[in-house]
Design a binder for these strands. Structure first.
Lengths: 138, 138
DNA sequence: CCTTGAACCTCTAGCGGCTAGAGGGAGTAG
DNA sequence: CTACTCCCTCTAGCCGCTAGAGGTTCAAGG
């Protein structure tokens, strides 16, 4: 299997410039080149990029993915660290959900007024005065 | 009331370089200066920056805040557009909550394995193979 | 074999929303 | 007057890409 960067892009859903970017930061190994200097990929690249893509979709940061990739290479190694990374990420996601939910409530409350003039508008008023918020901390 | 940039920073919780940044992008008007060229702020700046800070906390983008500020100035104007901006932002927040919740479920499922070797680890396995996900789309 | 046209190459700059650091001047308390 | 903190401008960097310029290579059709 020999793939151009465009083929790899279509197969993984990762854009061409992003693939080159990943190579530049060392997340993907530099592939072989054609006589004319174009990148030629194989199955290993396809799988590795699929892994990266998937982890990015799941919201892992590049540095975390770098560590996960290193672990994935060592199939006999312990996966404790992968759990630690995932737990940390989960905690972060849960925190973001909590903060966004509070924010959603705030925004809904702000919308609970008729469209009148700015002088009567809760949105402008709330933004100008934190005291009117539902929560002390958003 | 005359405030230095540091005073303004302490009163609003916005960092000093961020205040200068806001001025540079035209979100805050340029204040008067002391003889020596240091910024001197008054009550109007304090209120405007408080508004900005609050809107940022609520997750509004700078451009949205620019529009909200323009509306807040015209107290007799209609606030319909403020509602539109807020509704759009709310929709965005709700969408992010939904996607993060799906992601949270995914991460929790990935953690449901004992710490063994990488070869048996669900985390590495799931990352390498999208088919194993709970949802088709995260 | 030749032409076309898409795809590829490298390089630089830009996005948002700040943050950090260098190298210097201003203000203030003792 | 000194010491010290705060302030000034300017440039560069953060993340994770994305866009564009200007040029080269590849593959299919004639």
């Amino acid at each position: 299997m020999v793939l151009s960067i465009g083929d790899l892009s279509r197969r993984t859903g990762v854009k061409v410039p992003t693939i080159r970017y990943y190579e530049s930061i060392g997340l993907l190994p530099a592939p072989a080149r054609s006589d004319g200097g174009q990148r030629r990929y194989g199955r290993a690249h396809l799988e590795r990029l699929g892994f990266v893509r998937h982890a990015r979709d799941l919201g892992f940061e590049i540095e975390a993915i770098r560590e996960l990739l290193a672990m994935a290479e060592d199939r006999e190694g312990a996966c404790g660290e992968a759990h630690a990374i995932t737990r940390a990420h989960l905690a972060d996601v849960e925190d973001r959900i909590a903060r966004l939910s509070a924010l959603r409530d705030e925004l809904r409350a702000m919308l609970a007024c008729d469209n009148g003039t700015v002088a009567q508008c809760r949105i402008i008023e709330v933004l100008a005065d934190h005291e009117q918020c539902l929560h002390e901390r958003h």
